[in-house]
Simulated scan of single mutants.
Amino acid sequence: MTDDTSDSAVRVEPVPGEPAATAAAGGDRLLLVADYHAGYEAGLRSGRGVDVPSRAPDRRERLLALLERTNPDRLVVLGDLMHSIGDPGSAERGELEVLFESFPSTLSVTVVKGNHDGEIETWLVDGSEHGDGPGEVTVVPGDGIAIDGLGVCHGHTWPAREVLESDVVCLGHEHPCVRLEDEVGGSRVERAWLRGRADPVAFRDHDRYGDGVVPLWLEDDARSQPRLVVLPAFNDLVGGTWVNLSDQSFLAPFLPGALADGEAYLLDGTRLGPYDAI
């Protein structure tokens, strides 16, 4: 599954077998991940009384292996880097501090704030300040930013205009999954990618895009709509929206309406076809 357009150099390429993608934008090679949810196990213990051993080391090693495998200039986290909605607990903050100290100093990090990220910008600092971890660390609002034709946002709120003016829009928040059944009634749930055109009808009447600030493609159907790419959650414990079940509600306020001709893909690249017909 590769997202590109005939008139754009923007390419979003999933890393085979992984809930991550690479992209070339702004002169940099990017690694995109979404919904890391550091401290998730601590949240289960405090919120639900469920005692689950921490998988923080596994998450860290998987992400570090991806960085080594893809060699990006910048890591872009599409929201929910941490799990607690308010101030992080000691286990959660400790997990992120160890993670960031493990990053190479040549790596820049951009964190798009998700609905779980609280005031993360007040304590997530550049490694350059203390000699450990990545160089530049920036935290941007959840409605996202555009990086040379690539729009990135979290998905819990309506995207910024500049995001919708991009050629490709990548988001998280949804944790898309599909439930697959076999001939004898067995079933399993797999994380999935969603991909499709952005449907202008879903955005055109929203107040945010009125009063003369509407992206041009919303005004003219002949203009090329951006492609939407919904990333699977990096954290494999968090569950998500089973997109092929009719009784499941989507989390993003603009989904599923904004996803025209939406198709689902497994992490290994298997094309499942229209997500609502699986």
Rank of each mutant, 00 (worst) to 15 (best):
C170R: 03
C170P: 09
C170M: 06
C170Y: 00
L171N: 04
L171Q: 03
G172F: 02
G172N: 03
G172R: 10
H173S: 07
E174T: 03
P176L: 01
C177K: 13
C177A: 06
C177M: 13
V178G: 00
R179F: 05
R179M: 10
L180M: 09
L180Y: 02
L180R: 08
E181C: 08
E181M: 06
E181Q: 10
D182I: 14
D182C: 08
E183G: 07
E183W: 10
E183H: 11
V184W: 11
V184S: 14
G185Q: 02
G185K: 06
G185H: 07
G186W: 10
G186F: 09
S187I: 00
R188L: 09
V189C: 03
E190F: 07
R191G: 09
A192H: 04
A192M: 08
W193C: 05
L194T: 04
L194Q: 08
R195L: 13
R195D: 00
R195P: 02
R195M: 08
G196P: 13
R197D: 11
R197G: 12
A198R: 12
A198D: 06
D199Y: 07
P200M: 07
P200C: 09
V201I: 11
V201S: 12
A202M: 08
A202Y: 12
A202W: 15
F203W: 12
F203V: 02
F203E: 02
R204Q: 08
H206Y: 14
H206V: 10
D207H: 11
D207V: 15
R208S: 07
Y209T: 03
Y209R: 06
Y209G: 05
G210V: 01
D211R: 15
D211L: 12
G212W: 15
G212P: 12
V213M: 06
V213C: 11
V213I: 14
V214I: 10
P215Q: 05
P215M: 02
P215Y: 01
P215T: 15
L216E: 13
W217S: 05
L218Y: 10
L218V: 01
L218F: 12
L218K: 11
L218C: 04
E219S: 10
E219K: 13
D221F: 04
D221S: 12
D221R: 14
S224N: 09
Q225H: 14
Q225F: 07
Q225K: 11
P226N: 05
P226C: 03
P226F: 00
P226Y: 05
R227N: 13
V229S: 02
V229W: 07
V230N: 01
P232D: 02
P232Y: 06
A233N: 06
A233T: 07
F234Q: 01
D236Y: 05
